[in-house]
Design a protein around this nucleic acid. Structure first.
Lengths: 125, 125
DNA sequence: TTGACATATTCCTATATGGGAATATACTTC
DNA sequence: GAAGTATATTCCCATATAGGAATATGTCAA
């Protein structure tokens, strides 16, 4: 069996650095035309289009047509499986920093509680 | 240029599902002999050894010899780059849940603050 | 229609794969 | 040393690349 296709799942799709770069450019949540991405990536248009094709196939980006432009937009929720998987290992490098982090969180808690008890009735919606 | 090697970086290494499975098995932080992994993975020993070779090369596992056994151990901190990258997209699927989460956190803050002010002087180290 | 622009697709090639089978290496015990 | 066990490596092959070059498709404007 050969290596799984890049379009097999999101893990394979994001293995390529340039594709992660594209996702980073789309990270502001706005639509980007292919030409815009080509300029920012400084790589030939066909290459960008091909990478976008892979990202499209795994669903991590969506495309809409506006005139002759194709506007790509991030569909970040498709990255959640990656996040969920790797998050289970977070404790391995957070554990030592945990003490510091806990301190900070407690301090935050105090401040928040103070704020809350100060003007009790507020927050709309 | 062909696709980057699976040993090029951790992103390529974890693109393969069986390799993620191996990492999951090592997720308890303990040492595991190859034979143990072979049994649990239900796949031929050479295949497991080859996957372990990839994981070794990118540093996400370490190996130590004990007699004729090779004991593999997770080196999870090498997964941090993956976590760091994907974490920047967390907001995209947390944002809607954000309101609920904020409420919960505020409540926690109140409780923590109460606990803190109750018996002020404690916690060693 | 014709041309100009934006994007996608096709064709090419060198390279790497994952699995199976067979074999090599290393250690342990007799 | 010989046999047995644990693990790694080599050889094989079908398949899939990523990038470059060229071309096709689709859209706008005059």
């Amino acid at each position: 069996m050969p290596r799984a296709a890049t379009t097999a799942d999101v893990f394979n799709a994001i293995a390529e650095p340039r594709r992660r770069e594209i996702l980073d450019l789309l990270g502001n949540g706005k639509e980007h035309a292919v030409g815009d991405l080509v300029l920012r990536m400084r790589m030939p248009q066909p290459a960008v289009s091909k990478h976008l094709g892979v990202l499209r196939k795994v669903g991590v980006v969506t495309v809409s047509k506006r005139g002759q432009l194709r506007l790509y937009r991030l569909n970040a929720k498709e990255l959640k499986p990656v996040h969920d998987w790797v998050k289970t290992y977070e404790r391995f490098w957070t554990h030592q920093l945990g003490r510091i982090k806990e301190r900070a969180e407690l301090k935050m808690a105090q401040q928040l509680a103070k704020q809350l008890t100060k003007h009790k009735e507020e927050e709309p919606c």
